[in-house]
Amino acid sequence: MGRNTSVKSQFISGVSIFGILALCPIFFPIYWTMILTEILIMGLFAMSFNLLFGYSGLLSFGQAGFFGLGAYATTISILHGVKSIWLAMLIGMAASAIGATLIGFLCVRRDEIFFAMLTLGFGMMIYTVAHNWRELTGGSDGLSLFMVPPIHFFGLEVSLEPPRAMYYFSLIIVAAAVYILWRVIRSPFGLMLMASRENKDRLYFVGANVKNIRLFAFVIAGVMAGLSGALFSLFNHMAAPSFVHWSFSARPVLMTILGGSEIFFGPACGAAIFFVLEQLVTSITENWMIVLGAILIPVVIFTPKGILGTVVSWFTDNKA
């Protein structure tokens, strides 16, 4: 892909998507605004996963662990009297940063299936802690957040209880996080990530400590997953063990495969496809997973670049 030529068009498409998303609640009913909020949050989650998968070539099956750390730490700090949403979310991100540093330190020593298994294993351990440490986490019931504290913004007090307010709050946070991810992949460090994906041995021989590069990416991805988890807990008014379950780690994988891992917005697009389909299909049948499977199979076989990836490459091939 022509990185240099696509920078501007990527930026413009990013800003346009933001503009369209900002207008959506005006035309959408509340219910779909809430679906859209979920898409935004899970889209960020999937994009954090793809920093490792698509850009660094590392398949993480434990992203739900960091998502869950963010969700639990945010919820617990609010329940223990933290009044500021910002502070609570920062605590959530700090928790996932610490978790990702410790776990990443051990995981980045291996790659391919071994990396995937290590992340899966640590994800399961986090799940067990969330499920069994009842005093702190509420056990299998999780923790309910009866009231999300209002945010203070330039002296204004805004309640996040109305779905539209929560939507705009999520949109701004997600947009900021996506912008940071975009900067990261276009930075010299982003080049290191892609080089490590392409050929880690050669990278090592030109003088890079590949483990440290991967660890840094792992922590960034973990913090972003934690941020989406924090948002998710505010949106759902709860933190539940299901957020941390290994099957939840499969979600960003599915979304990324659906949308395309080689394209920046691919995973977010996959998240949108995932939730819209889920809504449409579950209104007809309860067997949503069968339909999802039936869609995934042709996507994987016929469009290995994912749906957005394939559409974009049609478009660019025709232009050239």
Binding site: R3, N4, V7, I180, R183, V184, R186, S187, P188, F189, G190, L191, M192, M194, A195, E198, L203, V206, G207, A208, I213, F216, I220
Partner: peptide, 26 residues
């Protein structure tokens, strides 16, 4: 990676840019 990027990888390492993650490579 592009041919240019292939050479930029060792150069970025050489000039200590390995972990500069918010500046633009361009």
């Amino acid at each position: 990676l592009s041919v240019l990027e292939n050479v930029l990888v060792p150069l970025a390492l050489h000039y200590g840019k390995t972990f500069s993650c918010l500046t633009s490579l361009g």
